[in-house]
């Protein structure tokens, strides 16, 4: 018997022996239902729902809603001009001035050209939610990793959760924007680049914020998160663990600092009050944000 065969035999025997020790809680299904209920409880109501508004009011947080109707907004380019930048088409706002999140997709860069603080190159993928309107906002759910395999694992893990939380608004499929210099695509992509996800329903900025936090809560058991608030299109560097996930939030406000600061408070409050969020997070407000 070769060494490999011996290893395989030992593995099978060990697995079999270990599996045979399994015990099962008699109330397992009850526990599943309890967990499901707890998840539903902690999930914020979407849109401008009364529960969210009431909760925000209790917390003394001013929610900023609405905006000015625009027929079109200029084409937007997200990124710093290096590989992995994302461009958006013209997107209409809604008649009531709500922010319409028109596109969301995984995108990837191999690598971005940026490096981790220790100098190692990072591989980079994420899903981007872009809003339009006077108080336009966008979210980038970013996974950064030191290897394509680690990135892929993060991506696979995130996809069903994004699906779960954003599924109601998405006409589905994750697209990929290939980097300008490379034809490589993120492995877990589920749609071609020319067919990005479209959001069918208008969504307020705050609604997307609650989903961002829900997303964090769903993922928090697995990841250490960094919430980075940056000016649109800016990325001030990777300050995350090798296997981390990050939410970048970019915001453009019509009246500048005050509403921006309110929103920082609001987002911070969401993060602090999301009871599913047990992993410490870092809220970084970059200089160019407000």
């Amino acid at each position: 018997m070769s060494v490999d065969e011996l290893v395989e035999d030992r593995l099978r025997a060990a697995f079999s022996e270990l599996a045979a020790t399994a015990t099962f809680s008699p109330d397992a299904w009850t526990k599943v239902k309890s967990r499901r209920t707890a998840r539903l409880r902690r999930r914020f109501v979407s849109g401008s729902g009364s529960i969210l508004l009431a909760a925000a009011a209790i917390a003394g947080v001013l929610l900023v809603a609405g905006g000015t109707t625009q027929d079109k907004v200029p084409e937007t380019h997200v990124g710093d001009g290096t590989d992995g930048d994302v461009s958006f088409d013209h997107r209409p706002t809604t008649p009531n001035g709500a922010y319409e999140f028109t596109r969301a997709f995984f995108y990837a860069t191999y690598p971005l050209g940026s490096t981790a603080p220790d100098g190692t190159p990072h591989w980079f993928a994420g899903v981007n939610f872009e809003a339009v309107g006077e108080d336009a906002a966008s979210f980038d759910f970013v996974s950064s990793a030191v290897s394509p395999e680690a990135l892929e694992a993060n991506c696979v893990e995130a996809a069903p959760i994004v699906d779960s939380i954003f599924g109601e608004e998405l006409r589905y499929g994750f697209g990929v924007v290939p980097s300008s210099a490379s034809a490589e695509r993120v492995p877990c992509a589920r749609a071609p680049a020319d067919d990005p996800v479209r959001l069918t329903a208008p969504a307020t900025r705050d609604a997307i914020a609650t989903r961002a936090v829900n997303f964090l809560a769903e993922m928090n058991e697995h990841k250490e998160w960094t919430l980075q608030l940056a000016g649109s299109g800016r990325d001030d560097g990777f300050e995350m663990s090798d296997d981390g996930m990050r939410v970048d939030f970019a915001l453009t406000t019509a009246d500048g600092g005050e509403r921006c600061a309110e929103f920082v408070d609001y987002l911070d409050w969401l993060m602090r009050t999301a009871d599913g969020l047990s992993v410490p997070y870092t809220l970084t407000v970059n200089e160019n944000f407000c």
């Binding site: 270990l18 020790t21 015990t23 599943v32 239902k33 967990r35 998840r39 699906d163 779960s164």
Partner: peptide
């Protein structure tokens, strides 16, 4: 899950959580 984690407690915990997640989907 037990074979992967080595812990019965963790295995049940993870599987119950997976079922709870699947519930909504």
């Amino acid at each position: 899950a037990l074979v992967m984690t080595g812990s019965n407690e963790v295995a049940e915990d993870l599987v119950q959580d997976c079922f709870a997640r699947l519930h909504g989907r």
